[in-house]
Simulated scan of single mutants.
Amino acid sequence: MLGLFFSAGMCSLERFGSILVLRLTGETEHRFSPALCSQLRQHIATAAASDARALVTTNDGKYFSNGLDLEWTKPEPQTRVPYILRELERLVLDLLKLNMPTYAAICGHAAAGGLLFAMAHDHRIMRKDRGFLYSAAVDINFVLPPGSSALLRAKMAPKVFKDMILQGVKYTGIMANEVGLVDSLQEDSAATLKEALDQASKFVERPWEKAAYAGLRLSMYPELIERLERESSSGGFITV
């Protein structure tokens, strides 16, 4: 059943029939560093160029992602924080422009940048017994970039967005399901991934075309994608 395998240390890409599984590997917090963002973007580019028809993203361990790699930013926070934020927004933009449906099988905590990455997927399945969705912005005195804020606003009901950003509410799987942040809940990690694969398997059999699917997603979020493209292409990067 396994058709291909790419591993880059912090993440891997496997193929099961016409479905690709992008996995954040290892028992780490899967924090976004330049290296992780680059590896994930390479895998998404591989997916875009393939004849696969769906992408499922999941994680090992207790974290889907705990946000930015703050240790990497400490030596030069004034330049490194904006840099990694732009790299994360480029990753999110790649997902939003991908020519196939995307499913996040969230098997742990998705906080800060991890929340952004999860919400960039078309569909989200979460395990019931462990993990939460959490912005963290108000608790760490962090002002979200306009593009990141626009993504969360586009994917959440207004009250959920307000509570998430201004009150720092942590949404458990049950809470997230009740307010529409996720599409379904499962008992554990294995069941969460299985449900995402099952949903993808059903959808890939329908006669949709990849260019049309990508166009439909772009038509849903034109202002968001335009803003992210503008932000992610801005200058001022440091060399890493």
Rank of each mutant, 00 (worst) to 15 (best):
E223Q: 15
A137Q: 08
R230W: 00
Q78Y: 06
P34G: 07
E76T: 08
I125H: 10
M220T: 07
K128C: 05
I84F: 05
K159P: 03
V21G: 02
I174A: 09
T25E: 14
S234W: 00
D163H: 11
L55G: 00
Y83C: 06
E76A: 15
E76D: 15
N177S: 14
P34V: 02
Q186Y: 10
K97M: 13
A110R: 05
G168E: 05
R206F: 10
S38V: 00
S33M: 04
L151V: 04
S184D: 15
K162R: 13
S234L: 12
A214D: 01
S135H: 07
K210F: 01
H109I: 13
L197W: 06
H43Y: 10
A35F: 10
K74R: 15
A136D: 10
K74F: 12
E187M: 13
M1K: 11
E187K: 14
R153G: 06
P145N: 11
T46S: 13
Q199W: 09
L228M: 14
H30A: 12
F64I: 08
R230P: 00
Y221V: 10
K194P: 01
L22R: 01
S232Y: 01
L85W: 00
D188N: 15
G131M: 10
F32D: 04
E223V: 11
L166N: 07
G17T: 04
A212F: 08
R130H: 13
S219W: 04
G168S: 04
I44P: 03
F203G: 03
F161E: 00
P82C: 04
T102S: 09
F32W: 04
R31W: 00
L93D: 02
H121M: 11
A190P: 01
I84Q: 06
P146A: 08
L20D: 03
N177E: 15
A118Y: 09
L55K: 06
E178M: 12
L151Y: 07
Q186T: 14
Q186E: 15
E195G: 05
P101V: 01
S18N: 12
F64W: 04
L55H: 02
T57C: 10
E76C: 12
F117L: 14
W72Q: 10
R86F: 03
C107P: 06
G131P: 12
F142H: 13
A45M: 11
P101W: 07
D51V: 12
L185P: 06
Y221P: 06
Y103S: 03
P158R: 03
L36A: 11
H109F: 13
V160M: 02
P101F: 05
N177A: 14
N177H: 15
P75F: 07
A157F: 05
N66H: 15
E178S: 14
M100E: 01
S149H: 11
C107Q: 08
S12C: 08
E205P: 00
I165T: 00
S201R: 09
V143M: 12
K74D: 09
D198C: 07
E229G: 13
E231P: 10
R90N: 08
Q199S: 05
L224W: 01
I165K: 07
N177M: 12
D188W: 09
L116R: 06
H121T: 04
R23F: 07
T192D: 04
L185T: 02
L152E: 00
G131Y: 11
G17V: 00
P145H: 09
P82S: 00
S7P: 02
L197C: 04
L197E: 00
D198R: 14
Q42G: 12
V138S: 09
E226T: 14
V92C: 06
S232P: 02
